[in-house]
Every structure is written in structure tokens, then in C-alpha cells.
Design a binder for these strands. Structure first.
Length: 480
RNA sequence: GCGCCGUUAGCUCAGUCGGUAGAGCAGUUGACUCUUAAUCAAACGGUCGGGGGUUCGAAUCCCUCACGGCGCACCA
């Protein structure tokens, strides 16, 4: 005995031995399942012969008969086993089977006196013996740490968690269909980058032994997707993981799922329409409506059209200060009790004011447009005002859910902007020369869009934490 | 990294003023052939997150460490 797994584990090992003693293989193999429990229940009539498989979730023994609940990926239902139906020998085997075990069974449906659809077991096979005790049947598993660390237990026990992840899968599938139906090509670009680009986040660093070079997990796929525009793919999207070496919070996981979409000959306004249509179609699918009352009691209304406001106007509306023209922006910001530093630029203060005063209060979807060019190095500036860009952020429920712009396709301007950004960068960052070279071949004007999928799923499934929509969220190791 | 809160049986939770730890469920044994949070009976189950301190005595007070939650910071 190398490890003490507790008295319950020992007890279950004894039950396992008892089964082996009776000639039962406790870890069965392939089992021909006749159908799901949901299909049995949905087509229920007395006298049907059915074969199902699942995990035993509850057990009510009555001496010479036993009621138990069995659950598969679709649903839970009651089964009934009697010694006279299966014989004394098999009944003895079954009395060593317990909650948590996975079995397959064949039987005939009937309805109990209390009206419960039930399967009268005629034969059964043990498919997997469980050695760990399941959480309590009534209160279930609540401890969030255990729920995240041992998600498998969370999924066994908590149906709402299971449903959230089924919905997540459905949402992602719908997003794929939405873009594929519109002629977009799904592509996969590198996750390991020589030069991390497309965002300013801190990357995870790794090393390739055979090549002898450092590599970085991508912080965004943007620069590669634009290379594909240069290559002649006019509509592309990528739906996959990004990695950012930053703090973890209710809204941040180090690896998260991002959708990036690029459409040649379009612009940021086309991206707005695309975003609106996507969100509305997802809301219809998940909520059955464009409106939904969240668990905090506040209604989210995604009905079109959505509000549009410029960053500058949004800030003026919130605090009455126009940071783009005010004489001393630092002083004005300090007077407005904004947490600014003395070396911040006018644009940075404007963005700070937006994040502090505007963003948290935008509950219903709002396109905030015209971010300063200085903070948007990959976006095209407006012809009418070169200080701001053809860019929007979509804010819903106080969170940024999407970011899009008319892509800067002027290679000379792009080089200048990236160089300027490098000057202010803390650590030694490099300019992605190949990206510039690609632009020099000519990239069609295009609209580009990024959507944080985890946050979108949070919205649609009414989840407060990103950990509730990521199956295995990042935690510190549990070694104690 | 900082602040606040939390960690008691496998699970869900009590634990009073500092006096030596309890319940329900699960598990074990026994009874029971229509139960469904089945019921009844008995026995079992504890490193009170780890370590240190104060005290005659610590789950309880203090320090420290670990992990988690929330907030801040970080994050175009």
C-alpha cells in the first residue's frame, strides 16, 4: 500500500474483490448500446425492450429488489432489478454494485405505481467499477476549487455545468457555420511565433531544442491572417487559442479562445453588421430571443440596431471633459479623480477615462468607435481625422467582447506605427519584418474582427466567471 | 504583486465565552419486492489546510506558509 486513499477507497476495493470473486470482470469492454436514455424516455411506452448504459447515481434497496437511478450523457432514469427476474446469482452480483459504477443493462419498460417510467432489468453488465466516492446526492459538489480541479466530478454531478459546456460547443459550432455559410475559409496559423505580434500582451516563452531558437506562444493570430489576405484568401477566420502571460481573474484565463475574422474589400462598418448579425443569431439560438433577463435581474437587449458612439463623445458624456482639446489633460484627469500618471499622453488619458468611467456602465451592446491612432497601430486612420482610427470595440455587460477595425494596408505607414510602438515598449521587442514585406506585396483593404469567445459564452450562458465556461481553467498545482 | 474573506469526516454543513469535535448524505453490517432525498436498526468514519507561538488547555487567539474566492494591479 503505497498511499493512503482513505477508508472509503479501501471499502470499495473490497467490493471490487468481491465482484472478482464472483467471476465478474469489473472493467468491461465494448457494449452495444441500444439508444440514449433521453430517447427511451421521449418515446416511452410500457413493454419496450431497451438496452442502455450509464452511471448509477442513486440506489434504493428493498431486500429482494432494488430501485436505482442510471444516468448517461443525455438524462437520468430509474431502473428496477428483482432477484426473481435476474436470478439469485446475478442479484448477488448486483448487490456488490454501487453508486458511481458504470453498467450496461437490458430490460423492459414499465411504469411504477407512482407513475415513474422505469426499466425492469433482465440482464446487466458491469462496465466500470468506481473506486472514488461521489459527492452527496442532494447538495452535490459545491466547492469551487474541487469543481475546477476535478471537473470530471463536477460534470458527473452538476447537470447545469454539463449543460453550460454543451451550450458552449453548440455556440462554437454555430459560429463556424455562420462564417462558412458566408463564404469564409477556416484556417489554422502558427501558435508558436518567432516574434509575438498582433497585440501588446506579454507572451509565454519557450524554446525549440532542434532549431536552437526561442519561440513564443501566440498572443494573437492577426499578423498571419493578414498574410493570408495578401496571399489572396479574401474571407478567412480562425477560431482557436491565444496565450497571454498575464494575471488571472474572473475575466482572464492565460489561454483563451479567440475568433478572428478578415474580409477583403470590407471595412469596420461591415464588421459591425457582421457582429450584430452573429450575436443576434446566437441569441435566437440560445435564448430564443434577442432579450434575456440575466441572473442579476437585469435584462440584456441585443435587439438591432445597437448604439454607436465615438470614444471621445462617450467620455465627454460621462465626465464632461473633452480630453482631446482640454488644455492640461493630466490636471483635468486628476481633478476628475482618474488614476493617471504624469507621463501619460492625451490619448492614453482618454482611454483611461473610457475604461474607468464608461466601459463598466455599458450594459447593453454598444459600439464604441474611433479609438486614437496612437493606441491602434494596426488600424487604418480616418481620412477625415488622422488622429483616430476606423475601429470599434463592442461593449456588453461592462466588458469588451469584440474589437475590430479597417485594417491598415499601407506598408510604409505600418512600419512607422510599429516602430513607434517599439520605442515605447519596455522589453526588447522586434519588428516583424516579414509582415511588413507581405504588406509591401499589397494587401487588399479589409475589415478585421476579433471576438473573445469565452466572454461571449459567459454572456450567452449567464456565467459570472470565465472559469465556468472553460473546462479546465488554469489553477496553481495542488501539491501540498 | 497588494487587500479582504475562506479552508472542520468522501460530500454538504454546524461547532456558543478558549475546556479537548457533531449532524445529514455516502460507505459498512443487518431487516425489507413499487421505492424515488426510500425507511428502520447498529457499528464505523477527523493531521479541524500545513508549520510555529500564546495558554494548565487551541477548530476557536496570534504569527507564518499553502491553496481557493472576490477586488485591485497587470492586460490595446
Amino acid at each position: 500500500m503505497s498511499e493512503d486513499k482513505g477508508i472509503l477507497f479501501e471499502q470499495k476495493l473490497k467490493n471490487l474483490d468481491a465482484l472478482i470473486e464472483l467471476g465478474v470482470n469489473p472493467y468491461g469492454a465494448r457494449f452495444e448500446v441500444g439508444g440514449s436514455i433521453a430517447s427511451v424516455k421521449n418515446n416511452f411506452a410500457d413493454g419496450m425492450k431497451v438496452t442502455i448504459a450509464g452511471r448509477i447515481m442513486a440506489y434504493r434497496g428493498h431486500g429482494k429488489s432494488i430501485f436505482f437511478d442510471i444516468k448517461d450523457s443525455t438524462e437520468k432514469m430509474q431502473a428496477y432489478i428483482q432477484n426473481k427476474t435476474v436470478g439469485e446469482e446475478q442479484f448477488a452480483v448486483f448487490s456488490n454494485i454501487e453508486i458511481g459504477d458504470i453498467i450496461g443493462l437490458t430490460g423492459e419498460t414499465f411504469t411504477t405505481r407512482m407513475g415513474e417510467p422505469t426499466i425492469k432489468v433482465e440482464s446487466f453488465t458491469l462496465l466500470s467499477k468506481s473506486l472514488q466516492p461521489l459527492p452527496e446526492k442532494w447538495h452535490g459538489l459545491k466547492d469551487v476549487e474541487t469543481r475546477y480541479r476535478q471537473r470530471y466530478v463536477d460534470l458527473i454531478v452538476n447537470d447545469d455545468v454539463r449543460n453550460t459546456f454543451k451550450l458552449r460547443s453548440k455556440i462554437i459550432q454555430s459560429i463556424r457555420s455562420f462564417f462558412i455559410d458566408k463564404g469564409f475559409l477556416e484556417v489554422e496559423t502558427p501558435m508558436m511565433h518567432h516574434i509575438p505580434g498582433g497585440a501588446t500582451a506579454r507572451p509565454f516563452a519557450t524554446y525549440h531544442n532542434a532549431l536552437g531558437i526561442p519561440l513564443f506562444l501566440r498572443i494573437a493570430p492577426e499578423l498571419f491572417l493578414k498574410r493570408l489576405l495578401v496571399g489572396g484568401f479574401e474571407r478567412v477566420f480562425e477560431l482557436n487559442r491565444n496565450f497571454r502571460n498575464e494575471g488571472i481573474s474572473r475575466r482572464h484565463n492565460p489561454e483563451f479562445t479567440m475568433l478572428e475574422v478578415y474580409q477583403a474589400y470590407a471595412d469596420y462598418e461591415v464588421m459591425m453588421e457582421l457582429t450584430e448579425n452573429l450575436f443576434v443569431s446566437l441569441a435566437q439560438e440560445v435564448w430564443g430571443s434577442t432579450k434575456h433577463v440575466m441572473s442579476d435581474g437585469v435584462e440584456i437587449d441585443l435587439t438591432l440596431p445597437w448604439k454607436r458612439i465615438s470614444l471621445k463623445d462617450a467620455v465627454v458624456e460621462a465626465c464632461g471633459i473633452d480630453f482631446t482639446t482640454v488644455a492640461d489633460p493630466v490636471k483635468a484627469a486628476i481633478d476628475a479623480k482618474l488614476p493617471v500618471k504624469h507621463d501619460m499622453t492625451r490619448d492614453e488619458i482618454l482611454c483611461e477615462a473610457f475604461e474607468e468611467l464608461v466601459e463598466p456602465k455599458l450594459y447593453n451592446p454598444t459600439f464604441v468607435v474611433h479609438f486614437p491612432s496612437s493606441v491602434s497601430p494596426l488600424a487604418k486612420s480616418l481620412d477625415s481625422d488622422p488622429n483616430v482610427t476606423a475601429r470599434f470595440e463592442l461593449i456588453v455587460r461592462g466588458q469588451e467582447l469584440a474589437n475590430a477595425y479597417s485594417e491598415l494596408n499601407d506598408p510604409l505607414e505600418q512600419r512607422k506605427r510599429l516602430q513607434k510602438q517599439l520605442e515605447s515598449a519596455e522589453d526588447s521587442k522586434q519588428l516583424d519584418e516579414d509582415f511588413i514585406r507581405a504588406l509591401e506585396y499589397g494587401m487588399p483593404p479589409a475589415g478585421g474582427l476579433g471576438i473573445g469567445i469565452d466572454r461571449l459564452v459567459m454572456l450567452l450562458t449567464d456565467s459570472d466567471s470565465i472559469r465556468d465556461v472553460i473546462l479546465f481553467p488554469q489553477l496553481k498545482p495542488e501539491l501540498s
